[in-house]
Design a protein around this nucleic acid. Sequence first.
DNA 1: GATTTGCACGAACGTTCGTGCTATTCAGTA
DNA 2: TACTGAATAGCACGAACGTTCGTGCAAATC
Lengths: 191, 191
Amino acid sequence: MTGTVTKGAQTRAAILDRAVDLASAEGLEGLSIGRLAAELRMSKSGLFAHFGSKQELQLATIEAAAERFRAAVIEPAREAPDGAPRLRAMGERYLDHLDLYSGGCFWGATSAEYDDRPGPVRDAVAGALDAWLAELERQARIAGVERPERFAFELYAVVMGANARYRLSGDRRVFDYAREALARLEEELPR
Amino acid sequence: MTGTVTKGAQTRAAILDRAVDLASAEGLEGLSIGRLAAELRMSKSGLFAHFGSKQELQLATIEAAAERFRAAVIEPAREAPDGAPRLRAMGERYLDHLDLYSGGCFWGATSAEYDDRPGPVRDAVAGALDAWLAELERQARIAGVERPERFAFELYAVVMGANARYRLSGDRRVFDYAREALARLEEELPR
DNA sequence: GATTTGCACGAACGTTCGTGCTATTCAGTA
DNA sequence: TACTGAATAGCACGAACGTTCGTGCAAATC
């Protein structure tokens, strides 16, 4: 029956939920099946059977992280109208949603990890980030920015930089700096 | 005799030179002693003897990377006078020096990898990055910026963002975007 | 009630990892 | 040329990794 959540699907979802957190802290390579199983109090083989290979687990984890990102950043920001308000909402939502991970931004951690490891995993990570950049670009275009790619890059750099800096220094003031930078970016928008 | 370069020191330097590249691509954890030895055509145990433990190898690699960074970014930028010109030179030198690594910025890769792994390695990485941020901040203060920390963060975010984005997309235009952002930051400076 | 399916388990495989010991080779000095 | 300490190699270890296999059990299907 459509909508029925089987036991297996529940377990799988629980695995992936934990996997996203673990990967955001230890990376997608450091995400070991044995550790993940131990944390979830299940056997390595039982967990493994859900995915068939480590790579499939990694890809499923990426998809789960993308889903979390959509639910926490993209979707809420849709309440704001296209263009400038949406851009402001996405930047703000991104900074807020960082608390959802126990190990900082999933994309910050995994993109640095896989940028030099060709393969399906890298492609999936790059695809997810490209999609976000493309959405930023689209909204910048709607807002009337003359060079949306440049604008999207700068917004990305500021918020990801804040994540990276906070992770290493523990100094929450970087979020204030980031918000100021976003505000100054906003002033660039034609009105 | 002081200044004499023994055979061991030469080997050690060659190991670390390769280790910095390998770690910038595979991370400090992915930097395996066996692989490193194979690439340098020496035995695992022979290489290992130079450091005594993997952690010591990692710490030495970080120090070597810091040295490379100083030689390629900090020192050349010293030719420019303190303040605004120095800030411009450091941003520019950073972007240029990225070609020195085969796997992108060493600090971008390792700081994301270790931000959630407490210990001496994390401390060393954080220390090196803090030192750079502090230097940026110092120069911003000399240039008369009202809030040097904020300025340093923004410069950092832009250039590290360019590295991350280029690594994943392969699109060199991000360097142009970064340079424009640096130019706009420069306009902020009091004259 | 019999049979099939979904899900999880424990044991074991081969490989790679870091690390420890011992033997060998090499360079520089007496 | 013999000696000596530094530098490198050889070999083995225990642990962790991803993966495979056969099995147990509960729910669903017939």
